[in-house]
Nucleic acid binder design. Sequence first.
DNA 1: GCATAATATGAAACCGCTTTCATGTCAAGG
DNA 2: CCTTGACATGAAAGCGGTTTCATATTATGC
Lengths: 363, 363
Amino acid sequence: MKPKVTIEDIARLAGVSKATVSRVLNERSNVKAETRERVLRIMQEQGFVPSLAAAGLAGGRSRLVGVLTPPFTQPTVPEILRGVAEAIEHTDYEIVLYSTNAGQSPTTIVNRILALGLTSCLLVIQPGPLTPRLLQLASQGLPVVVIDDQGPPPELPSVGIDNRVSAYQATMHLIRLGYRRIAHLQGPAEFRCAQERYQGYRQALDDAGLPFDPALVFNGTFETASGRACAVALATLPLTERPEAIFIANDQMAFGFLSAAEALGLRIPQDLAVVGFDDIPLSAHVRPTLTTIKQPFYEMGRNAVELLLSLLHGPATQPVAGAEGGYQPPIRIQLPTRLVIRESCGALTLHRRQEQEHSLSDE
Amino acid sequence: MKPKVTIEDIARLAGVSKATVSRVLNERSNVKAETRERVLRIMQEQGFVPSLAAAGLAGGRSRLVGVLTPPFTQPTVPEILRGVAEAIEHTDYEIVLYSTNAGQSPTTIVNRILALGLTSCLLVIQPGPLTPRLLQLASQGLPVVVIDDQGPPPELPSVGIDNRVSAYQATMHLIRLGYRRIAHLQGPAEFRCAQERYQGYRQALDDAGLPFDPALVFNGTFETASGRACAVALATLPLTERPEAIFIANDQMAFGFLSAAEALGLRIPQDLAVVGFDDIPLSAHVRPTLTTIKQPFYEMGRNAVELLLSLLHGPATQPVAGAEGGYQPPIRIQLPTRLVIRESCGALTLHRRQEQEHSLSDE
DNA sequence: GCATAATATGAAACCGCTTTCATGTCAAGG
DNA sequence: CCTTGACATGAAAGCGGTTTCATATTATGC
């Protein structure tokens, strides 16, 4: 291996001290233009790239962003990560990836990450509740940005969507299509987003003056299997009690629902309209294709990085633990979602739609 | 932020020197058992975790594995990465992720990675040819493992599959189903795997005594669009010249083919049987579901990490540049693939199959 | 023309750990 | 009882940067 070019080499070649080279490196203002030029040229010539490790050690802060992710096979993750990676690319930071692959305790992982001292900030992609440890660290000044879920009061700077409004739109879409008995398959209660989506659903019913029937709300786990279970449960309902449509809290469950429905001879959307939530890649390919709320995962990744870096550079990085005065809630970036209309909601089968507009006007 | 516990703190608390603590840390043998115990206990109590950054700096080698990947949205990547992440988790290494998101030159990226001095080894997920720079570095002793593609003679230690044999199986499967005119949509020539798959296809035809018709080989780019283009090209062929089946060099193109075929009124598998290659998640969900060769991506990731670490620890890590004597080709781990039979090849529609065997005998 | 401030640069300490080299200790060997 | 090692440990020198503090240089004001 060729010996690495160090700051010392550059200093010698440029006839200056290491300190000056370091200043050039960090774009400090107090270096004579001429000197800077020379140093930069030499660095260029020598192909010098400063060691992140050394810089981190010496400077006390590092140029590494720790990214904590669920397994990549969770279908929303790759897009988010793509956004993260792309945003990082435009900076001089790098990504250290901590995948919570196995079922380790998140707290353990977080501890390990930080103790390693590599990264000085953290990007957490975590659907579901945050660990107390993370909150504690953040309150101690660790820059953290969370993608996706958020505890009741926003606890950490985060990037996400408005689940309530999005769910409202999804449900309202079904209502506008003329469906009146609309079921909901919700996510697990510990997920904040599951609750919010449920609320959006309720609100839409209310606003449309539709009665709410608790029997039409099913509990899911956000996993495919619970979608299947829900379809089975629906199919066993007496015909008169069957809903005409269902808003399913994520696409993963919707897939399970779709496949079970097919097996049960339930035609989608003719017998039952379905709207999902997420718009992951598969959603455009299942049969029938899934009408769903598109989450801007890529943008979420990008925005999260930007937010994190602004936190890092920004002034207010030091919310002293326990400090009371001047509390301001953590920044939350809320990105817009979009309803993607495909086959499963029945909107594309026009004659059907017209029928429904009739029945709507009856109201 | 709480002040980090350093090796010095531990040393003081244990009443030993930093050097001794370091020895314990690195599991050197020459520490009295009693001392080791004490130090370990104190480290435990203090929740001490050594700084990777400092260790890397001081030791000249680091515990960071650089992983160079294509964008995560390339569908084969997440599974590989999952394998990588899981394998890493069992070690005390961490992953630094370099995603070649934008269209930057790979050489630039590689240079940057190494110059950063963070990582002392590299895992390259790169379909397609390797950059000369990478080869050069590897020959200088940088431990590198490549996943997937491989230049004509294996140039670097790598993990992958036997593309030739797998393609052979795919094609042979079609042949066994009774198809005789079998087309091939191949990947771009600069991809080694594309060539090998083509060879496997040829070989299968030969072995089955089927004539090879160059007009039935189409050039693709491994992207969806070229699958569509191929379907269009096929559809314009006079009926008599149309193939009965096609082996498509990757699933991505197969999807394009499938969707275009549908639009063109070409029924799969009745009018044309299709076999793909990769078995990415979508493959089980497109309509018709895709018969394909399953690549063990997850295992590839795991094996690559293991290979890389063994290279790192192993003795022969120093192939001095230019050294001639005792050359041994780089290790290649070849993982088995599997033919996954789904709808698109027609094997599942039995009656239909019989029909075809009839029409076959007519020829 | 000289005091004073602003600007540019260098010397050296330091970040947390590894490693070399020196030192100290103790058991075996003569 | 005194070597001779083997073993255990400590002191100190880095690793490649950053940062503080001091110093040298130049610009500014009166």
